[in-house]
Amino acid sequence: MSAHPSSSLKLYFGIWITLLACTGLTVWAASLDLGRFNAAVALTIATFKAILVALFFMHLKGASEKLSKLVVVASLFFLLILLALSMSDYATRTWT
């Protein structure tokens, strides 16, 4: 498949190290008191890791066509609809 087998192996191990480091980072960040930003930091790191896995381990980056990317983006878009419109109710209720 790949023209430079050793270069893709290097890439895989590099991503692997990064993912492990991010796991350590997110545990460490959780021990800091960042107020409401704790959740944001944790989710940002998780999303960064997920993107790394998707792009390089699942080969979304080198995908020969854009269709698989479209499928992923569309699914996430509909997930966003579910979350956002549900929250439009919960965030604006005047009763509990």
Binding site: L85, S88, D89, T92, R93, T94, W95
Partner: peptide, 11 residues
């Protein structure tokens, strides 16, 4: 059913 008035308007 008891959703917020704002959400009802949006929907």
């Amino acid at each position: 059913a008891g959703i917020s008035v704002y959400a009802a308007l949006v929907f």
